[in-house]
Write a protein that binds this DNA or RNA. Structure first.
Lengths: 208, 208
DNA sequence: GAGTGTGAAATTGTTCACAGCG
DNA sequence: CGCTGTGAACAATTTCACACTC
């Protein structure tokens, strides 16, 4: 397994989504063509993507649905569950706390934090909102893998710095600022305003 | 102006974010190096990106902050305001309705819809939740540019189909399914579970 | 000197096309 | 025969490097 393209990795969850659907529908095998339709790829691209990791298909037949799903989960590191904390119990934090995809796909939200004393102690989807000041003790006692940042923009970088110091290895950032973290920490930014702005460009482009 | 790379477009909002910050701080000019630091690009990339659209900088000095910001806004089509509807008043919809970045950056959320009669009529950030059945009449009377989909996955494709028929030109989809829309409609998918899964891969990669 | 603008080189990512297996 | 696996061709994107201007 040589250098795997970043873009390949980002397509794998899409393939997995399709595979799980096909599995639920009882399809024993699935072709690269079928996989390509979801996920906006071409059949050749699907085959190339998968070939980075091994030969999972049977010529003339396709890929065994169940096995491939399990392989892709393995590749993505979804063979185990991940401990996740959410920092920021505002609307974004609240939306994330009960996002059905998380639990279902192996991510356990173990705690949610907020800086506002008025929010601390309230319950949210079975979790009691804890003060951000407790982060150090909590993560010291039981480390987590991933943190989701849903704080206001102004607090996001400080929050990230603290989380990194506390050993968090991956950050999913919903605050509308670009964070700086050490290279060894995986960071994904989701910035809705930026998405909308890029969309706007496309909107005007297509009119032409 | 030749073919502009998709990746270039996606960096422009990042540059704009930085330019607005620099403008607020009273910096008269800004260098490609400074612009690159935010936005995870290289100085050369910034210069190349901008050069697709014209020569905005002065050699030896940098780019005039205010002018460049205004140019980038123009390029992205942010010279006017956009009418936006949100479909789905669940937690994601609620989080989006009050997302501070929207209003501030030229996007007016004019209505929010839900299929659940129990939610219809409730107020959310100054908007009364309307029944999805009213979409046809509402958009017929006053068209919108962009729709944000925050429905459950099962309803997302139907919703998208209807919105497209009603003349929506751009869709920002937060439902956890990949939507299919005609080529002339601009679509951006934001799928949090998928982001997390790609993050997981990076997490394990870096350990090596 | 500092910093842009830009062709040309290097790298990265995608598509083709076909050999080979089931 | 259908469909995978993959080198080789091609296309897109990024980086380099340097002429040029302030």
């Amino acid at each position: 397994m040589r250098h795997v393209a970043e873009s390949t990795i980002r397509r794998l969850p899409l393939y997995l989504q399709f595979l799980e659907k096909a599995e639920a529908e009882g399809k024993a095998t699935v072709s690269s063509r079928a996989l390509a339709e979801r996920g906006g790829a071409t059949p050749a691209q699907v085959r190339k993507d998968l070939s980075f990791f091994g030969s999972f298909g049977k010529r003339g037949i396709g890929y065994p649905t169940r096995q491939l799903a399990s392989q892709v989960r393995e590749i993505l590191g979804l063979g185990r569950r991940y401990r996740v904390v959410i920092v920021g119990a505002g609307r974004i934090g609240a939306a994330l706390a009960n996002y059905p995809g998380f639990e279902q796909r192996g991510f356990d939200v173990v705690a949610i934090y907020d800086a506002d004393p008025g929010k601390v102690g309230r319950r949210l989807d079975g979790l009691t909102i804890r003060p951000v000041t407790a982060l150090g003790d909590d993560l010291g006692a039981a480390p987590v893998d991933i943190a989701v940042i849903g704080t206001p923009g102004a607090a996001a970088q400080d929050t990230a710095d603290r989380l990194v110091r506390l050993g968090v290895r991956g950050i999913l950032n919903f605050a509308p600022v670009s964070l700086v973290v050490p290279r060894e920490v995986a960071l994904t930014n989701v910035n809705m305003a930026l998405e909308l702005e890029a969309l706007t460009f496309a909107l005007n482009r297509r009119r032409a």
